[in-house]
Structure formats: structure tokens, C-alpha cells
């Protein structure tokens, strides 16, 4: 084990996978300069053929990824900010997510789209959306949301080796967060949730960047004798329902923390699934801690007022535990 920042772990994953598989081509805006640090050094190591700076033209590059993959390449396409995915959305929603299905499985589309997602850095409304619900709703793309540096590395390597389009969404502004990363090669499979902290009283499912505040809240509540089980789905497509349902059946209570806007968030989807299939196990209504249906503001004090935080999570946990069936 060594202590590394998330962005370093991602950089290692990219380097190792491009070394391992010469069919990989990586392109995107400023991947040479590397705004976030994830693609740092790749151009120097692998050359201008395999690592390409593109113009700022998301409509083209998101579709080029599909064409190059259809023609036999393994592709890593850097979309930079999650909000820029919207500009490239035709090729993502209409081509990447559908071409295999429409052609009866004639092809594989091994594409990893990289983007940062979510707020917290005063980047304002057009650089701060948590875009995973939009992508999860497409049906034909997988969506990975790592919650730690070790997961980021193992999940990114799996994403690159996967034969389907995968969005790897790194939580914006969290690239600098350190964590222990194994030295030896390892993969973390897509679709396998992790129990970050066991607990008997309530299941707290936290997605991507929300894992950290969820663990802090769980730690604080533990001091009061409240034992919360923190579940990190790690990928929202596929979603490891087995692990989540098993946890809910053990604890009887569920709070989901999701940095998405409330309407059609993954938290909403998960709440619906649990209500539908595990209603008998519930001792209290499911609670969601999400972002209200508004834009992400600029001023730090405004942004803090909008995004889920430790206090909001603690409050939701307490209220769920305090709930009693009306007489």
C-alpha cells in the first residue's frame, strides 16, 4: 500500500492499461496539458498517434469514439467537464448507447468516456452538474463513480477493459483526496458494491463523492451509539442491488445520498426499487438526501447551502431512526 491522490491513481490506471494494450487510443481536449492531471505524461510515453489533443468539438469526438471502437480500437475519450457531455450527447445517446442493440449485437464498443462530475468548487452552474442520472437513463452505457483512490484505479482499469461504453465519472474537485492504493496490479469489477462501514441500525447508500461525507456522518453518529452501515455502489450502471437489498434487510432502514438533482436522481430510482421489492423489510420510510431541483450556484455560501453535506446526512439518519408509525 502507498498513499496516493485519486488523480494519481487514475493516471497509473491509464498508463498501465495503455502499456498493456497497444490497441488503445486516447483523445480529448487538452489531454497533453491535462487540466486535471489524469492524462499527465501519457503523450510523452505513448506518442502523438495514440494520445491526441482534439479541438473543442464534443459532438465530433464523442462520435469518433464510437466509429473508432466499431472499427476495432479500444478508445478512451476525455470529455473534460461533465456538462460538456451534453454538447456531445447525440453520439452518446443515439450512437454509443444504441449501435450494438440496433445491429443485433454485431459489434462491441469498448469505449471509456472520462469526465469530472458534480459541484463543490465554485465552478458555477455550467461546470458543476452531477450527470450520472442522465447517463444511467440511456440504458446502453455503464456508469462508474469511484469513492476512493484505490477504487478509482481498480474501477478505471476494469472500465477500460470492458467491451461496452463506460462513463467513468470522477468527482469534481476530489482528485486531490488521498487514500491507500495497493502496489500490485488489481481490478475492481463493475457492478459490485462495497460496504464501507458495517452497522446494524440503518443502511446509508452513498454515491461517488457522497461516500466521504457519509462516512464522516456515520463516524459522528457512532459516538452516540447509532451504527450506520455505509454502502458504496461504486457503479450506478450496473447497480449492485443484491448487496444493497441485503443491507436494507439487515437494518430495516434506508437513506440514500446522491449529489444529483432530486427529480429522477439515482437515489429516487433506488428508493423506488427498495419500496417495490423490499417493502416488507422497512421499519421507516426511505429518505433521500439530494440536490434540490435548481442550478448549482457560484458563491461558496450558496453552493454549500445546496449540496448534501455531513449535517444533512446526519439529520436524515436521525429523522429516519426517530420515525414511528402514526397511531
Amino acid at each position: 500500500m502507498a498513499r496516493k491522490r485519486m488523480i494519481q491513481a487514475m493516471n497509473e490506471a491509464l498508463l498501465e492499461e495503455m502499456e498493456r494494450d497497444p490497441s488503445i487510443v486516447l483523445f480529448g481536449e487538452d489531454v497533453k496539458a491535462s487540466l486535471f492531471g489524469d492524462t499527465k505524461g501519457l503523450w510523452k510515453r505513448f506518442g502523438a498517434d495514440r494520445v491526441r489533443d482534439t479541438p473543442i468539438c464534443e459532438a465530433l469526438i464523442s462520435g469518433m469514439a464510437v466509429g473508432a471502437a466499431a472499427a476495432g480500437r479500444r478508445v478512451i475519450c476525455h470529455m473534460m467537464f461533465g456538462n460538456f457531455v451534453y454538447t456531445g450527447m447525440d453520439a452518446i445517446a443515439n450512437q454509443a448507447a444504441k449501435l450494438r442493440y440496433m445491429t443485433n449485437g454485431q459489434i462491441k464498443l469498448p469505449i471509456t468516456y472520462l469526465a469530472v462530475s458534480g459541484g463543490g468548487r465554485s465552478a458555477a452552474a455550467q461546470h458543476s452538474d452531477a450527470i450520472h442520472p442522465v447517463l444511467a437513463n440511456l440504458g446502453g452505457v455503464k456508469v462508474v463513480m469511484p469513492g476512493s483512490p484505490a477504487d478509482a484505479k481498480g474501477l478505471l482499469k476494469s472500465a477500460i477493459r470492458d467491451d461496452d461504453p463506460v462513463f467513468f465519472l470522477q468527482a469534481a474537485g476530489r482528485g486531490g483526496e488521498p487514500g491507500e492504493v495497493p502496489e500490485d496490479e488489481y481490478l475492481i469489477p463493475l457492478g459490485r458494491a462495497a460496504i464501507r462501514r458495517p452497522g446494524r441500525d440503518l443502511s446509508l447508500v452513498a454515491i461517488g463523492a457522497m461516500v466521504r461525507p457519509a462516512l464522516k456522518a456515520a463516524e459522528a453518529l457512532s459516538g452516540e451509539g447509532i451504527e450506520v452501515e455505509v454502502v458504496d455502489p461504486r457503479t450506478v450502471v450496473p447497480l449492485d442491488l443484491e448487496t444493497i437489498f441485503a443491507s436494507v434487510r439487515r437494518t430495516g432502514r434506508l437513506v440514500v445520498v446522491d449529489e444529483a438533482r432530486d427529480t429522477c436522481s439515482v437515489a429516487s430510482h433506488l428508493a423506488a426499487l427498495v419500496a417495490e421489492r423490499a417493502f416488507d423489510a422497512l421499519l421507516a420510510p426511505i429518505r433521500r438526501v439530494t440536490v434540490p431541483d435548481c442550478c448549482i450556484p457560484y458563491a461558496p455560501v450558496l453552493e454549500r447551502a445546496i449540496l448534501p453535506n455531513v449535517e444533512a446526512i446526519e439529520r436524515a439518519v436521525r429523522e429516519t431512526l426517530a420515525w414511528r408509525r402514526p397511531a
Partner: peptide, 18 residues
């Protein structure tokens, strides 16, 4: 999608070039 094939062909051309 009208124009949908243009980016795909550009990507296939990149693969061909490589």
C-alpha cells in the same frame, strides 16, 4: 440521426489511419 454518421466515419478513419 441526420448527420449522425459523420463523426462515426471520422472515428473509423482514425482507426484506419492507426
Amino acid at each position: 440521426i441526420v448527420g449522425g454518421g459523420i463523426a462515426l466515419a471520422t472515428g473509423a478513419a482514425l482507426a484506419a489511419q492507426l
